[in-house]
Amino acid sequence: MAKRSTFRTLLRRAGPPAALLIVGAFFGGYAIMGPNGALAYGDIQRQLNKREGDLAALEKRRAELKNRVALLDPRHADPDMVDELARRKLNVVHPDDMIVDLGK
């Protein structure tokens, strides 16, 4: 009987600190090795650099489209742009026209 009470006493005294140690080790390991942890920092930087490159390409494309929209504004449309767009969409080419494909 004395052994049983000694074990219970030991469990009562060492149980809470052991549980806190286990929980702390879990969160500490997750902070180091988790998806947002210290070891994932290099991967996060690579993803950020890739996304910044994608963003720059999208901003460039957006600027090109914004320029085309400005050239097609009904209040002061660029005649060359309107002619080019109409011919492309309607597939209308005069026999005397020379087509120069710029690869766009």
Results as ranks from 00 to 15, higher is better:
9 T>Q: 01
74 P>Q: 07
96 D>F: 11
83 D>N: 09
24 G>H: 09
81 M>D: 09
32 I>G: 05
31 A>M: 02
21 L>Q: 14
14 A>K: 10
47 Q>E: 15
72 L>C: 12
34 G>W: 00
98 M>P: 00
41 Y>A: 08
66 K>V: 04
47 Q>C: 12
74 P>A: 07
31 A>W: 01
26 F>A: 02
38 A>T: 05
65 L>A: 00
89 K>S: 05
77 A>W: 01
61 R>F: 06
41 Y>G: 02
53 G>V: 01
61 R>L: 08
77 A>V: 01
24 G>M: 12
102 L>N: 15
28 G>Y: 01
83 D>L: 13
8 R>P: 00
71 L>D: 03
49 N>V: 15
89 K>G: 05
52 E>R: 07
37 G>P: 11
77 A>E: 11
23 V>P: 08
96 D>E: 05
11 L>G: 02
55 L>I: 15
3 K>I: 05
84 E>A: 15
1 M>N: 12
66 K>Q: 14
13 R>Y: 07
98 M>W: 07
85 L>W: 06
68 R>E: 01
62 R>Q: 03
69 V>K: 08
68 R>W: 09
89 K>P: 02
85 L>M: 08
14 A>R: 11
37 G>N: 04
29 G>E: 10
47 Q>T: 11
104 K>H: 00
91 N>C: 09
16 P>I: 00
37 G>S: 07
11 L>C: 05
78 D>P: 13
90 L>W: 06
62 R>E: 00
28 G>K: 02
93 V>S: 03
102 L>Q: 13
23 V>D: 09
18 A>R: 14
69 V>Y: 07
72 L>F: 08
8 R>A: 06
45 Q>M: 15
74 P>L: 06
